[in-house]
Write a protein that binds this DNA or RNA. Sequence first.
DNA 1: ACCAAAAACTAATAAGCGTTAGTTTTGTAA
DNA 2: TTACAAAACTAACGCTTATTAGTTTTTGGT
Lengths: 196, 196
Amino acid sequence: MAKIQTEKNTTKKEVILQKAAALFKTKSYTAASMRELADLVGVEAPSLYNHIGAKSELLREICFKIGNEFIEQTDIIKNSPGTVTEKIGAIIRFHIKKMMENFDEVFVANHDWKHLPEPYLADFLTIRRTYEKSLVSLVEAGIANKEIKAINPYVAVLTILSAVRGLEFWQRNKKNIPPQVLEDDMVLHLLNGLVN
Amino acid sequence: MAKIQTEKNTTKKEVILQKAAALFKTKSYTAASMRELADLVGVEAPSLYNHIGAKSELLREICFKIGNEFIEQTDIIKNSPGTVTEKIGAIIRFHIKKMMENFDEVFVANHDWKHLPEPYLADFLTIRRTYEKSLVSLVEAGIANKEIKAINPYVAVLTILSAVRGLEFWQRNKKNIPPQVLEDDMVLHLLNGLVN
DNA sequence: ACCAAAAACTAATAAGCGTTAGTTTTGTAA
DNA sequence: TTACAAAACTAACGCTTATTAGTTTTTGGT
C-alpha cells in the first residue's frame, strides 16, 4: 500500500489541485497551461498525468467540491430553527466565510465553470439552479411571513448571491478592513438597507 | 474615399467588434479563436486583419469603451442636484440599464479585462479604482449627511457594484420578470433592505 | 539487498493558435 | 474603360497546447 503522501497528510493529487486552483485563479483556466502548473508543483508536465487524468478533471473537481459544500451547508441552515431573516443572515455569513477560507477554489468555480466539458457542465448548472431555487423558496417563506418586503424573490436572491460573490475583488484590500466588520456591514446592508 | 460601410451606417470594424463581444461573452476571450470570429463575420480569418491590428485590440476597445461610459455618466449624476440617496439610486439604475442594453460588451469588460496586455491592463485598473473611489466618496458624503447608515463605505460600494453586476446571470430569465420590476426591486433592496 | 510498483524523466505527436506574405478579387472614382 | 486602393482569398509560418509512449529513477515493503 504505497502511501504517496507529501507534507501534512496530503496526497500529491491534493497538492496539484491546490496549485491548480491558485493558477486558474490568476490566469484563468483556458490561459493556464499544464507546463505552468507543473512548474508550480515542481515537476515536469507529463509527470502530472501519473496523478490526474486530464486538465479538465482538475476544473471539474474544484467546481463540484465547492458546489456541493454550498448546497450541504445551506441545507443545514435552512433546516435549523430560527426566523427567515436569521437564516438568510447565516447563509450570507457562510458565503463570506467560505469565500475567505477557500478563496482560490471559490473563485475558480465562479469564473471557469463555463469551461467544464459535457456532461459535467449540464450537471453543474443543474446544481446551481437547484441551489438558487432553494434560496428563492426561503425568501418566499419570509415574504409570506411578512418578515420580508414583497419584492421579487429571484431578484432578492440574485442580489444577495452577487453581492457576496463580489468579495472576489476584496482580497487585495483585506488588510484595511477587519473581516468581521466586512461581514457585519454586508449583512446589515443586504438585510436592512443602506439608508437610515 | 472608399466608404467600407455595411448595413446601417456601421463600418466593418464595428461589425467585427460587435461579433467579437458576443463571441468573447459565450466562450471567453482566451478560448475564442480568430477563426471562430471570422466565421461569425462571414469571412476568412486573415481578412480580419485588414480592419484590426490584433485580437487583443478588440478586447481593449471593448473594455475601454464601457469603462469610459460608466465614468462619464456617473460624473454627470454626481454633479446633478439631489440627495445622496437619489444619486445612488440613479447610478444603480444606470448600471442596470447599461447592462441590459450593452450586455455583451459589459459582460466582456467585467470578465476578460484580466487578459488585457500591458500597459492597457494597468490603465484599466486605474480607471476602475478611480471609479470606485468616486462612488466611495459619494457614500461617505451620505454618511456625513446622516442620510446613510454608518457602514464601511467600501463595503457598501462593493455590495452595490457586485449586485448590479450579477445581472449577467439574469438575461436567461428575462422573459419572466419585467425589466422595470427588476430595476425597482433591486434599488429597493440595496437602499432600504430586505426585511420589513 | 531485492523486487515490484509508483512516479519521475525525455522525446515526440497531432492539433490549434495568432498572424504574415503574397496574390487575386472587388469596388469606386476619373 | 482604366487605374488604384480596399479587402478578400490561399498558403504557410512559428509557436504553444494537452497529451502519449517509452524509459529511467525513486520509493517502500519483505
